[in-house]
Design a protein around this nucleic acid. Structure first.
Lengths: 205, 205
DNA sequence: AATCGCATATGATGATGATCATGCGAAGCA
DNA sequence: TGCTTCGCATGATCATCATCATATGCGATT
């Protein structure tokens, strides 16, 4: 079960259900997880997030010790969501097609245009090395998870080299999406995604 | 007494007759080109740049119509430098080894640690889609040039598919560097770079 | 229905940011 | 040598930002 973390000596109806504060906290994190992908770490202000969550800026520090703490929670959530989504896509694919489906989804136009709900590494990768240790740590953890997810879709899963190959695939996926979003030429953007898709078209189970 | 700054600092004798203002303008752009890679577009302020260039913030608008205009010039310069450096490395390599040397240099520890003088796409990629049109345009141009540089090192240069392959290679290079910089685990960082290096170890002329 | 505690709002503070108006001092011309 | 022009500095303005102190009002408990 859960540890009782009561903020008062009196039993103020603690139960498995979330308290009001927890619900709000959660909503702020969810909004922030989208905001950072849309506007970047540096471009996301406390007031923006609170406003988007339907609150005002003042209450923020009742929920988070600092802006960085929120960013860490938001990055963590975004990463966890991305890994879970990838695993789901792979799990739902026909046997032997999981890596292909994963790549197709990742390099899709929908993902290209849906930054705020997409891969946080593609959305925030080049800002990462400037972030607070907690943020980088969460990111690193999810990156490792993502590599594992990909590795499990490889024919030689468990064999030496599979992990290495998975690292390469993930690097390529992310680089392709970063580039495809960076350029202002839609044709080039599409060509970049298709080139990567084509390169991996034979890899799979 | 007064700090004499003449054009002797940088013997950039492109035009023998560079006015004082042009020299200063150039210096600001050069500083900015490093600053944006180090601190990101959003993290680079006008005052920071001017201070680093040995000036005060006030004179800025005598040189640039806006902050965005400077960022565009800085991005353009960083991109041009990166492409030129890559082409130089390839040109200096032993015959048939140019792509290998290029990859080795790009994925080196030196580049990993030298953000401010390195590839601007790896340093700024995920911030790019939010930038002013001029900035994105300059970036796109240099990305195309970079793809061409890589394509020319391929065995099947000119044959159908070479350009496609070059796009894939560039995407992978950039993605690998973004990831290697993002993670806070040096072992993983190194493993990512080596995985990509290994994957391309047979490609070349 | 009255009360009370907690979650959130209001508002303040000090820092920093982009932009601009204006003054000063040095470089070059007469 | 004195004058003019131009490049840069000083300093101000207005906006935004993170953070915090304090007020308020809702909802649950009595």
């Amino acid at each position: 079960m859960m540890i009782m973390r009561s903020n008062s000596a009196h039993p103020s109806a603690k139960r498995a259900t979330q308290s009001r504060k927890e619900v709000t906290h959660d909503r702020i994190v969810e909004v922030a997880a989208r905001a950072i992908r849309r506007s970047g770490y540096a471009g996301t202000g406390v007031a923006d997030i609170m406003r988007e969550a339907g609150l005002t800026h003042g209450g923020f520090y009742a929920h988070f010790a600092s802006r960085d703490r929120l960013l860490a929670e938001a990055a963590d959530r975004a990463g966890a969501e991305a890994v879970r989504l990838s695993a789901d896509i792979a799990a739902a694919a026909a046997p032997g097609r999981s890596l292909q489906e994963l790549l197709r989804a990742y390099l899709s136009k929908a993902h290209l245009e849906g930054v705020e709900n997409g891969c946080p590494v593609a959305a925030l990768g080049s800002e990462m090395h400037r972030q607070a240790p907690e943020v980088r740590h969460a990111a690193t953890r999810h990156i490792k998870e993502m590599i594992d997810v990909v590795a499990r879709q490889l024919p030689g899963w468990g064999m030496p080299g599979a992990h290495e190959q998975a690292m390469f695939i993930v690097s390529s996926m992310i680089g392709t999406m970063v580039m495809a979003r960076a350029v202002d030429d839609p044709k080039l953007s599409k060509a970049l995604r298709e080139a990567t898709l084509k390169h991996f078209s034979e890899v799979g189970k």
